[in-house]
Design a binder for these strands. Structure first.
Lengths: 219, 219
DNA sequence: ACATATTTTTACTTAAAGGTAAATATTTTT
DNA sequence: AAAAATATTTACCTTTAAGTAAAAATATGT
């Protein structure tokens, strides 16, 4: 028994904590949720009471196994609904988020498992993120677009989405190759361009380029 | 801008008021919503402030045109989602209600209109109830199963769903014909059997029979 | 038509979820 | 290591939705 608001907090903590592996600060959650730190403190206490998080006063919260599972199952719903919207209802990738944020809270196991089957068990959502299975397993080592990483995240280039000659030539000129380690230094809020370091050289790439680079996360 | 709770009240009032045509008492709403009369009074005031209902103290509430439209658009969503669940996700008619009650509150015009198109513009939901169009028009004179009527509702028999020899013979034996006026006197909660008066004769029919009789509402 | 029964409203509580401002811890700087 | 800056918590307020109990209005029965 978990409320809509609790689900949103768990999701935020999951995303901020590198899939539930590390502890997250009150302020970081407040910023992500666009609310105030005092509200976050209250909610963390509630989540701790329900055994969704471990909480040490003044030292942030980390997900319990129950919390991680709950968060991942919400993310599963979010990504399956995104898939449905794009593949069946003519939504474009940038229109889905708002609606999927609502749909992810619908409570019905049958619904989500039937939807999964109806979509023929997709493994990735329209943004390239992996879809957790019904037991909460998710391939976090999977490739994701570089554009989905957060600041200070390290990664390794696995493949490209756009495999046109032009794009490969562009990468060549910048000395970027499959297998390279790419660190995200900074994301410009205005145009979502990404400052990266690759092969100890710093450079800035556009959002479009970042979307076409599939990487795997490195701690 | 209408809350989930307000939408549920508007829907209840719509169903209780013969499609918005008559005024509904506080107690009737409380019973339908499974809440207390005092809560209903509070909510009616809020709905009146927002111009969804006309409210005269101690004399119930009736839907304004805005209230009727809002209620009908929620019902449109409910019925389209029911259709989706049954025709695409292998739900049976008795499993859909709970989930559709949640889905009907998702806010996105594009979503519901694309869903409508995806389902190829169905005119009736799996229970035979008409689906309102995007402008809130609904064919209330349309045929509905006798089983969807409420107590003390009058109706006229339009057609049958089950057109087997056995069923038609059964109707014959009871002296029931197309065009007859059928009044619902009482619905037995235990087995949903319906006590009716037809041709000034009273009789009881099973839920199954009531589901197979299409009638139109008569005031 | 009046006494009684029923319905409806009012005033006061409660539980979520969020916000403000002040108090307290922790971290950083010098 | 003390002062300053930052982060977190606490105490208290607000709103929404629902509940309780008493008061007020309406409806009913004789």
């Amino acid at each position: 028994m978990v409320t809509l608001s609790e689900e949103n907090y768990l999701k935020a903590i999951y995303h901020l904590s590198n899939h539930g592996s590390i502890s997250v600060s009150t302020n970081a959650i407040a910023e992500k949720m666009e609310t105030k730190a005092s509200s976050v403190t209250d909610m963390i206490k509630k989540l701790a009471d329900k055994n969704f998080v471990n909480y040490i006063k003044y030292h942030g919260a980390s997900l319990t196994e129950l919390g991680r599972l709950t968060a991942v199952l919400v993310i599963r719903k979010h990504r399956l609904w995104e898939m449905f919207l794009v593949s069946k209802l003519n939504f474009s990738w940038d229109e889905v988020h708002n609606v999927a944020e609502q749909l992810e809270h619908i409570k019905s196991e049958k619904l989500i498992n039937e939807l999964d089957a109806f979509l023929e068990f997709p493994t990735h959502d329209p943004h390239g993120d992996p879809i957790p299975d019904k037991n909460g397993n998710i391939n976090t080592l999977d490739k994701v677009p570089l554009s989905t990483l957060q600041e200070n995240q390290g990664s390794k280039l696995l493949s490209v989405k756009d495999s046109s000659d032009e794009f490969l030539r562009f990468l060549n000129k910048r000395n970027i190759s499959i297998g390279d380690t790419i660190n995200v230094l900074n994301i410009e809020p205005y145009d979502k361009s990404v400052q990266i370091r690759v092969n100890s050289k710093e450079m800035t790439i556009t959002e479009n380029v970042a979307e076409n680079l599939y990487v795997k996360n490195v701690k």
